[in-house]
Design a protein around this nucleic acid. Sequence first.
DNA 1: ACAAAAACCTAGCACGATGGTAGGATTAAG
DNA 2: CTTAATCCTACCATCGTGCTAGGTTTTTGT
Lengths: 148, 148
Amino acid sequence: MKLSTKGRYGVMAMVDVAMNGDDGPVSLKAVAERQGLSESYLEQLAGSLRKAGLLTGIRGAQGGYTLAREAGEITVGDIIRVLEGPIAPVECASEEKGPVQHCANSQGCVAKSVWVKLRDSIVKALDSVSLADLCDEAKQDGGCLPPV
Amino acid sequence: MKLSTKGRYGVMAMVDVAMNGDDGPVSLKAVAERQGLSESYLEQLAGSLRKAGLLTGIRGAQGGYTLAREAGEITVGDIIRVLEGPIAPVECASEEKGPVQHCANSQGCVAKSVWVKLRDSIVKALDSVSLADLCDEAKQDGGCLPPV
DNA sequence: ACAAAAACCTAGCACGATGGTAGGATTAAG
DNA sequence: CTTAATCCTACCATCGTGCTAGGTTTTTGT
């Protein structure tokens, strides 16, 4: 039940772009430096986010990325889905229903109700928070202490 | 955001023991056959569940496992925690707080509120369902269709 | 006493995902 | 025409997952 770094870094990057994109596009170099992440790894994540329609890429010098939609219209769930795939604690309880949904046995079927319940609460939690929400929090809190 | 087979199989096995344990202990061989799982892999899971105080092992012929507590007193969350570790979508938002909790940077801190929210809904979903609940469902539904 | 059935224990191992790096090609600003 | 950036593809080391194998102990039934 762990999120991979893709999802985590992706959210960090999107928040960074949202907060620093007021005057022109934000370069991944800047994001990488501020967030302490690898730039070339970020490139791959940004590529996925662009293809999914969450980021707009601007090439050439002084280029970078901007949000493709308003910060209030992009949820954490959107980002996670792009970078980690459909939300599904177990395959048979995926958001996106696969080819045929049948159970290997009756017991497996029983547990399914928990997995569906679990999936729904994950979806609800992730979809109820937008980038704008996170930016507002950040401005209020004023950030936290740097690492030791 | 996937559960590993440990958690899934563990829940399946516990439900199986709960439902078939009325007359004596349930052997892993029987569980493996009914659920279509590897017996030796199940042994490892059962070992962890026993050490964690969820199962009681009875050795020798006609031995097997019984629930160490009543089915109503064992939640799915209990099982998952034993087999997959503390519930934590990301490390900095773990149920069990690690050595020191500080953020690498202010942006990481911002996202943290989502992760905590996410963790809480996962915990709530998993802790609100007991083995007894799953058994009741199973008896009502009467199982579902076998695989194709 | 002995054979069978079970829990219990440990080591190892193949595979795939994760978390990157490397090196380039294209595009645009100055 | 140099520089800074996106964009693209291939590769790779490491680690967790999902097992298998092969034993030992313990208990029951004959």
